[in-house]
Amino acid sequence: MATGGRRGAAAAPLLVAVAALLLGAAGHLYPGEVCPGMDIRNNLTRLHELENCSVIEGHLQILLMFKTRPEDFRDLSFPKLIMITDYLLLFRVYGLESLKDLFPNLTVIRGSRLFFNYALVIFEMVHLKELGLYNLMNITRGSVRIEKNNELCYLATIDWSRILDSVEDNYIVLNKDDNEECGDICPGTAKGKTNCPATVINGQFVERCWTHSHCQKVCPTICKSHGCTAEGLCCHSECLGNCSQPDDPTKCVACRNFYLDGRCVETCPPPYYHFQDWRCVNFSFCQDLHHKCKNSRRQGCHQYVIHNNKCIPECPSGYTMNSSNLLCTPCLGPCPKVCHLLEGEKTIDSVTSAQELRGCTVINGSLIINIRGGNNLAAELEANLGLIEEISGYLKIRRSYALVSLSFFRKLRLIRGETLEIGNYSFYALDNQNLRQLWDWSKHNLTITQGKLFFHYNPKLCLSEIHKMEEVSGTKGRQERNDIALKTNGDQASCENELLKFSYIRTSFDKI
């Protein structure tokens, strides 16, 4: 039985969820670079991206490699990797027998973001014989899940209580170790020597080791999670996991709180800001991140802002960003909400898709409305799209047979046209069989910064309504002859009103 693990408890099935942008060198404390989270699957090609990484700022997932063999891993080693800020997950990587050479110096898994409450997941690794993470000293947050690894031993010899604050939620089941077939031998045991430290858990006094050649490092209890030197002297209180010299914040392997210019500090002093819960960055760093993602459509890219001495992905609820200094300031009234469309555009074809934009005031991208039916549609669209004030790209209304009016965009005031449909149009209306009105132009103002209007096959939309939009939106004169079809717009509506004058002759039985 794995020490510190839980057996036999019912657990939810383990679901495996399925960018080499360097964020800056980590400095003297770390020998390499800070790398983003990685999802490495199918083959070993991307694994080489770990070569210079000291910190993975995010998670590391290595999974679904069915053609790899043990010899493929023999020359692979990433000794610079010290810390993973989120979680480490391995799933069905064939041929991998140990992690001792792959990650010989991995010391800390912070667990800032977890995989279903777990910071370390080893699942269905069919050839893994031992973990071998002999320098792993601290899992700051989260638990361990090690399950269905039929060859995995050296679990009962690990004292997880020396690595985690609590072992109650560890789930370590259905491994070879369960069948008591392992016969784990710690260093020196074969020669009758006791080389590794022994600890007591559940009444068992057991030597602690990761492999037959690597003991588990056990520091004096007084050192807590700070770690200790090879001689057993406690590291500085700002260290986490390990250090090369005692009581020196510049000799830590990793930091308990924050890293700044080669030393570990309790908090980031001005003019620095907390970033990702582990390091200090200056304003320029946060500003660069903001600008890199301002026009990016890459998933996970955030326009970072500053709030409460932190550089964070977005302002919290009730705050909006001051564009001059990136500071989050309290909103006066309802907060603006910028919604970034991942692929640059979004099609609204149902109430469900409209709900995804609920509360958005600025759309960074283009909207395509293609709704053919739905219950209580006008009210639903207004509830979900009615706060949109600005669209950076274009607005396209296409084959939306259920629409009679666009009044559900009740606050839309600006279409920038930074991206144009077919390279020309910022407003595009095609084949809307029941569209009769755009907006009530006596109450609604709309500016279209650039781009043209396109109207074709809107049989109940009168040309007068379209011409009014040209005047109000500032697009009059931009359109070419064929942009607004004269014969297919309003051709099934009563669009022309003329005053009919009647004269009559009164007659009676005795007068003409």
Rank of each mutant, 00 (worst) to 15 (best):
F285I: 10
L96A: 05
T221R: 15
L289V: 14
G188C: 06
F66S: 01
P334T: 14
F275Y: 05
C268Q: 00
C280Y: 00
I146P: 00
D261I: 12
L89K: 03
S244H: 13
F205P: 04
L164R: 03
E180Y: 07
L64D: 01
H48L: 11
H214G: 02
I201C: 04
S143H: 12
A156M: 11
F91H: 01
C293F: 15
P70M: 13
I146V: 15
H307V: 07
R74K: 09
S98I: 01
R256S: 08
H226G: 14
C215G: 02
R141E: 05
C239M: 00
G188L: 11
I62A: 02
V305M: 13
L90W: 04
K129S: 09
L44T: 08
V144L: 09
K251C: 06
W210Q: 02
K310M: 09
Q204T: 04
V218T: 11
I146C: 05
N42F: 04
R141Y: 06
P104L: 01
N135D: 06
Q245W: 02
N138V: 14
I146D: 00
D177Q: 12
K129N: 06
K176E: 03
V218E: 06
P271C: 12
S77K: 04
Q299T: 15
S161Q: 07
C293S: 07
G241N: 03
Q245F: 14
C331N: 10
T189E: 09
L120C: 04
N105D: 14
E33S: 08
K100C: 15
L96R: 00
C186S: 00
N175T: 03
D184H: 11
E124G: 01
I222Y: 06
Q216S: 01
V305Q: 05
N195C: 13
E266V: 08
Y94V: 15
C255G: 00
N175D: 02
A190M: 06
E314M: 07
I201G: 03
F123L: 01
I56C: 05
T267R: 08
K80F: 04
L128Y: 00
E57D: 04
D169R: 15
N309L: 07
D288L: 14
S237A: 07
C186N: 00
I109P: 00
S98H: 02
F115I: 03
L174P: 03
V265A: 09
Y171P: 03
C186R: 01
T320L: 09
R92V: 04
T85D: 03
L332N: 05
G32Q: 15
R298V: 10
P79Q: 08
T194D: 07
Q204F: 13
Y94Q: 04
G58Q: 00
L106K: 00
P330D: 11
H290R: 04
G183Q: 07
A119L: 01
P246G: 11
S324M: 05
S143V: 12
W278L: 11
Q276C: 05
R145Y: 06
N105L: 03
L120H: 00
P197S: 09
S317G: 04
E314L: 04
F115N: 01
L99A: 11
Y259H: 13
T140Q: 06
K193Q: 15
R145M: 03
N105T: 07
P270G: 10
G227W: 04
C255Q: 00
P316S: 06
N257L: 06
R110Q: 13
C243L: 00
F116P: 01
H212V: 06
V144K: 00
C234H: 00
C219Q: 01
R92H: 04
P330R: 15
R145F: 07
H28W: 08
Q287N: 07
D86L: 01
V34S: 04
H48K: 12
N195V: 10
T107L: 07
G241M: 03
I185F: 13
N242S: 08
G37V: 08
D72Q: 15
K176V: 02
M65Y: 05
